[in-house]
C-alpha cells in the first residue's frame, strides 16, 4: 500500500493551503501528510478534469456535424449522415433509449429488491451466502455475452409471451403485435432488466445487510411478522441505497450498447407498439453505424453520443438529488 504514495499520476500542488484547506486537513503539518493530501486531492481534481474534457471534446466535434446537418437534429426521423448533404436526427434514438430503459427498470428493480431481501432475510444463511456469491459472479458476465444469449436464446423464446401480450393487452395499443421476429424494444427491455439485475441486487443486498440488527430484534420482540420487520426497519434504512442501486442499473441500461446491438433489429421509425418494429437506441446506433461512417458520419455519431451523455448526466443528477434529500446516517465523518 506504500506504493500508492510513490507512483501517483498527479504531482502534488505546491501552493500553500488556504484557510479552508487547513480546516479540512486538520493537523496536516507533517510533510507526509501534505504529500498524501496533495496526491488524493489531485486524483479528485483529475476526475473533474476528465469530465470537463469529455464534455468539451464531444461538444467540439458535435458542433461541426450539427451545423452541417440539413435535417432538424432533434426531430428528424432519419440517419443519412454519410450522404452529402448529411441528414440525420435523434428523435427515434431518444425514444428507444428511454423506453427500453424504463421497461428494464420496471422489471428489474422490484425483482432485485426481492432477491436482495431473500438473501439477507429469508434464505437459510448458507443458501444466502451461496446465492450472493453466484450473483456476484453474474454481475461479472460481460454484456456481449448477454447480447449473444439474448439474440440466440431469449428472442426465440419470447414469441409465446408476445402472442399472449397481444391477445390480452393488445387493445391498449402498446402491446399489439404483428407477428414479426420479436427483436423489438420490449425484448431489449427484458434483456436489459436481466443484465442490470445483478448490479441492483448486489448493492441493495449490501445495504439491507447493514440494517441495524437492534431495530429488527426490537420489532420482532413486539410481535411483528417478518414482513413487518422488513417494512418497518429494513426498507426505510435501505431506501437511499436502493435508489442509488437503481441509478447504477439505469446508467447501465441507458448506455448499454452491445446487447442492444445484437438483439434489436433497428429501423428509423417510432412505433406505438413496444412489440412491433425496432426503433433504435443511441448506443446501438453508434455501434452499428460506426463501421461504415465517413468523417462527417463519425462526427454525427459523436453528436448523438453527446446527447446520450447529457441524458445520463441529467438522470444521475436527478437521482443524486433524491438521495441527498434522504441523507442517511454514515458511520464515518459523522
Amino acid at each position: 500500500m506504500d506504493i500508492s504514495t510513490q507512483d501517483a499520476p498527479v504531482p502534488p500542488p505546491t501552493t500553500t493551503p488556504t484557510a479552508e484547506q487547513k480546516r479540512a486537513a486538520r493537523g496536516a503539518t507533517r510533510p507526509g501528510d501534505r504529500i498524501f493530501l496533495g496526491l488524493s486531492r489531485g486524483s479528485g481534481i483529475l476526475l473533474l478534469v476528465i469530465m470537463a474534457a469529455i464534455a468539451a471534446f464531444l461538444t467540439y466535434r458535435a458542433i461541426d456535424a450539427i451545423s452541417a446537418d440539413e435535417a432538424n437534429f432533434f426531430t428528424a426521423f432519419e440517419w443519412e449522415a454519410n450522404s452529402t448533404p448529411p441528414r440525420f436526427g435523434i428523435a427515434v434514438l431518444a425514444y428507444g433509449t428511454i423506453v427500453s430503459s424504463i421497461i428494464a427498470m420496471v422489471i428489474a428493480v422490484p425483482i432485485s429488491v426481492g432477491i436482495a431481501l431473500f438473501i439477507t432475510h429469508y434464505a437459510p444463511r448458507r443458501l444466502g451466502g451461496l446465492i450472493s456469491y453466484v450473483i456476484d459472479l453474474l454481475a461479472a458476465v460481460p454484456s456481449i455475452v448477454y447480447g449473444l444469449w439474448g439474440a440466440l436464446v431469449l428472442v426465440p423464446n419470447l414469441k409465446g409471451l408476445y402472442g399472449w401480450l397481444d391477445a390480452y393487452l393488445g387493445w391498449t395499443g402498446i402491446f399489439s403485435w404483428q407477428g414479426l421476429e420479436p427483436r423489438s424494444l420490449f425484448a431489449v427491455g427484458i434483456l436489459l432488466a436481466i443484465m442490470i439485475l445483478p448490479i441492483v441486487t448486489n448493492v441493495s443486498r449490501e445495504v439491507f445487510r447493514q440494517a441495524p440488527q437492534m431495530h429488527q430484534e426490537a420489532a420482532l420482540a413486539l410481535g411483528a411478522t417478518r414482513w413487518e420487520v422488513i417494512r418497518m426497519s429494513v426498507l426505510p434504512f435501505g431506501r437511499s441505497g436502493v435508489i442509488s442501486a437503481s441509478m447504477l442499473g439505469l446508467g447501465r441500461a441507458l448506455g448499454e450498447t452491445m446487447a442492444v446491438a445484437t438483439v434489436l433489429s433497428p429501423n428509423f421509425l417510432i412505433e406505438a407498439s413496444l412489440l412491433d418494429g425496432g426503433g433504435g437506441t443511441f448506443a446501438q446506433n453508434i455501434a452499428s453505424k460506426f463501421g461504415e461512417a465517413t468523417e462527417t458520419g463519425r462526427d454525427a455519431l459523436i453528436a448523438s453520443g453527446l446527447v446520450l451523455f447529457v441524458i445520463t448526466l441529467l438522470v444521475n443528477g436527478a437521482a443524486r438529488m433524491i438521495i441527498a434529500r434522504r441523507k442517511e446516517y454514515s458511520g464515518a465523518n459523522a
Partner: peptide, 28 residues
C-alpha cells in the same frame, strides 16, 4: 479529507461518471 465545495463536486461528478455509458467514453 473531503470537506467543502471541491469534495462535494468530486462526489457529484463521480456519481455522474458512474453513469457514463461505455460508448461515450469511447467517443471521447
Amino acid at each position: 479529507y473531503g470537506r467543502g465545495r471541491l469534495a462535494k463536486s468530486v462526489t457529484f461528478f463521480v456519481d455522474v461518471m458512474t453513469g457514463i455509458p461505455s460508448i461515450v467514453a469511447g467517443l471521447f
